[in-house]
């Protein structure tokens, strides 16, 4: 089992004919993801370099292919519009990879998708992967370990991209498989957040533990800590990036900024520890911390 996506998920790619879109579509197909078509306005009726049908609109693509998920590689100025188009066309999950989308565009888009009941992952994220089932995003597939019915499995939720790969790799090299890994993105306004995903992992029988990777800025981790204390019975390991970050500076991610004395790593780590969560002391010990918390270390 897994959450949100599996081998049956049918995916259309918005921006499939662009350089990044085309490259990552190939990678996803190689991994085994069911990519069923693409959307590029003005190129409807043609085939992508992967031999997939290209449609002018998301509605046409969904009608023709029965897709239930959209992966977006649309430039920052048009990405929010494409996300709304996908949701309006009826997909159940929008994976928004694009970086640098104006925050107020996301404020409007998030509300639009929530009103329709469509899940959003991202923006500014690596996407979602159910190892061995579907890779919908830009993460390197080979570092993941699919579940095989034995041993303990984890679910991973992260605000960072490459730091997620680091945590995944540490699990894989310890023989801990992953049910699903989600990069929720580094922007201040985003779709699915720690709480919703922790709840899904709690309900997934194959997931035995969760790794939560947070970073400075906002109060998502503090809220996650309170939720875990209330509603999560499975072991959780966490890491917070940015313990040495100076206040007032945007650390790469638009959302990673300590402002007005809020959003420090110290306050997040304190909240997590208070909730009984095992916090890794360094980014090299995320896998080990999870293994210990699950009693397999």
């Amino acid at each position: 089992m897994s959450i949100l996506v599996d081998a049956n998920t049918k995916v259309i790619v918005h921006g499939i004919t662009g350089q990044a879109g085309a490259f990552h579509t190939s990678q996803c197909i190689d991994y085994g993801t069911k990519i069923v078509g693409g959307v590029t306005p003005g190129k409807g009726g043609t085939k992508s370099e992967h031999g997939l049908p290209v449609f002018n609109t998301a509605a046409e693509a969904v009608d023709a292919t029965g897709a239930d998920c959209s992966m977006l590689f649309v430039p920052q100025a048009f990405a929010a519009d494409s996300a709304m188009e996908a949701a309006a066309a009826g997909v159940k999950l929008v994976v928004l990879i694009t970086e640098g989308i104006p925050t107020l565009d996301m404020v409007r888009t998030r509300k639009f998708l929530a009103d329709i009941g469509c899940h959003l992952i991202g923006p500014n994220c690596p996407g979602i992967i159910t190892p061995g089932g579907a890779k919908i995003g830009i993460m390197p597939g080979y570092i993941h370990k699919p579940t095989n019915g034995t041993g303990k499995n984890v679910g991973i939720i992260s605000r960072s991209g490459t730091l997620t790969y680091e945590a995944v790799w540490q699990c894989t090299t310890r023989d801990i498989a992953q049910t699903t890994c989600i990069g929720i993105g580094g922007d201040p306004v985003k779709g699915l957040n720690f709480i919703e995903l922790l709840g899904m992992f709690q309900d997934d029988p194959d997931t035995h533990g969760m790794i939560l990777i947070g970073e400075i800025g906002g109060t998502d981790e503090e809220q996650a800590a309170a939720f875990i204390k209330e509603s999560v019975t499975k072991p959780v390991a966490a890491f917070i990036a940015g313990q040495t970050a100076p206040p007032g500076k945007r650390m790469g991610h638009a959302g990673a900024i300590i402002s007005g004395g809020q959003g420090t790593a110290a306050s997040k780590i304190e909240a997590l520890k208070q909730a009984g969560i095992a916090v890794a002391p360094s980014p090299a010990e995320i896998g080990a911390t999870m293994a210990t918390a699950m009693g397999v270390g």
Binding site: S160, G186, E215, A241, G242, T244, G252, H253, A256, P283
Partner: peptide, 17 residues
């Protein structure tokens, strides 16, 4: 010199560690 904001922050953290 790091790729990714989260990993870049963590790299600073582990140096300090």
């Amino acid at each position: 010199l790091v790729n990714g904001a989260g990993l870049a922050m963590s790299t600073m953290d582990i140096i300090k560690h």
